[in-house]
Computed example of a mutant assay.
Amino acid sequence: MGSAFLRKSALTAVAGTAVAALLLTGCTAEGTEASERPSDESSQEETDGEGGEGGDEEARDEVLMDFGDETDQVRELQARLLQLEHFAAQPTGYYGDVTLGAVSEYQRAAGMDVSGTVFRSTWDALLGETEDPTQEELFPPQQLMGYGDNSDQVRELQARLGQLDHFTENPTGYYGDVTTSAVVAYQQARGVEATGTVFQETWDALVAETATPTEEEMFPPLEIPEVEPAQELDERCLTGRVLCISKTTNTLAWVIDGEVELTVDVRFGAEETPTREGEFEVYWKSRNHHSTLYDSPMPYAMFFDGGQAVHYSEDFAANGYNGASHGCVNVRDEAAIAGLFDDVVEGDRVVVYW
């Protein structure tokens, strides 16, 4: 049960209220985010339950499956979630980002504590709402590429679709909503079953009518505007541990007791979905986060205000400032934010300012 159970039983009241906002206002790499966290009331009940009869409570809600597992039971989980339209890919047996998001969304819809982890209570409820998966549901025809993939072949797919004007963004290598829509458009145009997933038939047809992408088509140059000259830190950033985020310089500075430990480029939400200014604190960290609202990845997410978080964005890394989030603070240096994620702890302050 380990970390998943501890996470469920050590939450504050502010985290509980943040869950609803998180589900409704998430943002993504192409404009992303949201998943969830158990309520304070339920976590208090679990805390109170430890000791005495708590052993029975714990046994009833043991962890059956969690992120990183790879088993036949996970494959069945995915097939059952697919029956309820919570799972957007094909069953693989691996419990990754997409499965975590699907489980979180099922828990939310079922009125459970939202954790993204399959406890016995989650599994029992899911069994009661679904049928035993068929062999075809468990082992569908093998796809070449599909939602959630991240590879050079996906980048090539995007470049080839771009040659036919079905993909209008710069290739990123990530198979998300934009790529799915582009594949559907291509399949419809060619009279192939429009699944949004690339099977051999789709790939063979696409390869036959496109040229091998050039290096420039695969990795187009980015137009990145000059950042404003450095400015002094906001005075709120000069004491304690602070993620100091300037909208003027498009930078995030990790500051400890007035000393800048790290500075990275960031981008913010669009005009319709702005990143909120103010003083906040990190209330939840989710290393392998996946937005249930936008079905998009949010690695190294550090939530500070409802669904708004600091997180790595592959779209930002690929397209620079030719895009925006849905309110989150995007970071494009993956190595830097991976290290920052390990350094920051829940309760550290976040200051967003002009």
Rank of each mutant, 00 (worst) to 15 (best):
A335F: 00
W354F: 14
G96I: 02
T25C: 07
E58Y: 06
Q143S: 08
S35M: 08
Y312D: 00
E271A: 14
A317L: 03
G320D: 00
E33Y: 10
N330R: 12
E209Y: 07
E232Y: 04
D305A: 10
D165Q: 14
G49C: 11
I245P: 07
A20Y: 14
P171C: 12
A338V: 03
A89V: 00
G269Q: 09
E57H: 05
Y300F: 14
L206I: 01
E314T: 09
R75I: 04
Q200W: 09
Y353W: 15
D56W: 13
T212G: 03
A110N: 06
T212F: 04
D177T: 13
S325Q: 09
G323P: 02
G54W: 09
D69A: 00
T195W: 01
S151Y: 00
V98A: 07
T263K: 05
F67G: 01
V264K: 02
T248W: 01
G26W: 10
V242C: 05
R60N: 09
A102F: 05
Y294T: 12
S291F: 09
S286D: 15
A230I: 02
A336F: 07
F219D: 09
Y175N: 02
L77N: 07
E314Q: 11
L293A: 15
T273M: 07
P140T: 06
D204R: 09
T12E: 12
V114S: 00
L222S: 12
N150G: 03
G278F: 13
A59R: 11
M302N: 05
E279Y: 09
G55N: 12
T71Q: 08
L100P: 01
A88V: 10
G240W: 08
R267V: 03
A324C: 05
A125Y: 04
V207G: 07
A270R: 13
D40V: 13
E156A: 09
E281R: 14
S296W: 06
G54T: 10
G307Y: 01
C237M: 12
S3P: 03
E226Y: 02
G68D: 00
E346R: 12
S325T: 08
A29C: 06
F303H: 07
Q163A: 12
A21V: 11
T249V: 08
E272A: 13
E261L: 13
L6C: 06
Q73M: 08
D40F: 14
T248C: 02
F139I: 02
L293T: 13
G191L: 11
A18N: 15
V344T: 07
V227G: 08
R349H: 12
P274M: 05
F5L: 15
V227A: 15
Q44S: 10
Y186G: 00
G16E: 14
E105G: 05
E314C: 00
V207R: 14
Y283I: 10
F316C: 02
R190S: 06
V242S: 10
F199P: 00
E217M: 14
L100K: 10
A317K: 03
G55E: 15
E259F: 01
Q83F: 04
L64Y: 01
V266H: 06
E156T: 13
A125Q: 10
V74F: 01
V329Y: 05
S286I: 14
M65P: 00
S313M: 04
G54D: 10
Q153D: 08
E62F: 00
N150A: 06
